[in-house]
Nucleic acid binder design. Structure first.
Length: 275
DNA sequence: CGAGTGCCCTGACAGC
DNA sequence: TGCTGTCAGGGCACTC
């Protein structure tokens, strides 16, 4: 069990409690959704109380090599090499903090997080119940991490496309058969993406510095203007929950009342062709 | 309390 | 060449 000898990070509200990690031992390395959670103990036989939480955001990289730029956290451990871990985060969307006594009050998303998508706790029945409670657009609800953990914008689009569910459908209106399909699609997409070591659009790298290969398997995300791989209709891009959203207008039927496609803020004409 | 919006932050890129 | 504006997105803070 390695102990934290020193933490260097810029001071601020997001990092104010990091120094609580100093002198404690890392009892485990766990993950909840997109959060890394490291329970800390004050002695090898103690029960974990504080939890060191790392969220890498979109551009965060955690690894043993010192980055050439955008270093945010330096974590010095006792014991053998590697004895220093670095967090690089160009866009500063990451978070790193200690939750005293594991209290997630400052991280509401973590506190209310749904089951792990690849675990046994993610059931069709539970997923259906979560959707039935909300009239938010189904994509917005999925992105909230509450019905299921770990689904971000790319994989939400892919799963909805596979299940033939329009992202603007009110969650409670998704038919039972499509809830089942979406549940399966989320599992399939995430399992395949993990297998491919993720999706590198721009910055993302694995812990070994490699790009993620799932980019090549994307069917909908980023394919606006391209033919749908299933039916050939052009994929359309719209905005749902402030996120770029890619839909096949033929396979994914829009809910009644939704006018599609919704372009973003109508202050600027969209470019003629995709890149 | 659920839903929607604004914001953070930097790099890539388009357009002039 | 260099400037300006826009866009990308995970999660929190805030408003309605």
């Amino acid at each position: 069990m390695r102990a934290v000898e020193r933490v260097d990070a810029p001071l601020g509200p997001k990092t104010a409690l990091l120094e609580r990690a100093v002198g404690q031992r890392i009892a485990a390395v766990e993950r909840r959704g997109k959060f890394l959670t490291l329970p800390l103990v004050r002695s090898p036989s103690a029960v974990p109380a504080d939890v060191l939480v790392l969220h890498l955001g979109m551009t965060g990289v955690l690894g043993p090599r010192e980055p050439s730029a955008h270093l945010r956290v330096r974590l010095r451990l006792d014991g053998p090499d590697p004895d220093v871990l670095f967090v690089q985060d160009a866009r500063r969307f990451g978070r790193w903090l200690v939750l005293p006594d594991g209290d997630p009050v400052s991280l509401p998303t973590l506190a209310a997080m749904g089951p792990e998508p690849l675990g046994a706790g993610f059931t069709v029945a539970g997923f259906a119940a979560a959707l039935a409670r909300s009239r938010a657009p189904v994509k917005a609800l999925v992105l909230s991490q509450r019905p299921v953990a770990g689904v971000g914008n790319i994989y939400a689009d892919e799963a909805l496309w596979r299940a033939r569910v329009h992202p603007l459908t009110p969650a409670a209106d998704v038919p039972r058969a499509k809830v089942r399909a979406l549940h399966g699609a989320i599992r399939d997409v995430l399992a395949a993406a993990v297998e491919a070591q993720g999706t590198t659009l721009y910055d993302y790298r694995t812990v070994n510095g490699e790009v993620g290969a799932y980019l090549e398997q994307l069917d909908a995300y980023g394919h606006d203007g391209d033919p749908c791989p299933r039916c050939g209709a052009p994929i359309v891009k719209l905005v749902v929950a402030q996120r770029g959203t890619h839909v096949c207008p033929r396979c994914q039927r829009a809910p009644r009342g939704a006018r599609a496609p919704i372009r973003g803020p109508a202050r600027r004409r969209a470019p003629e062709a995709g890149r």
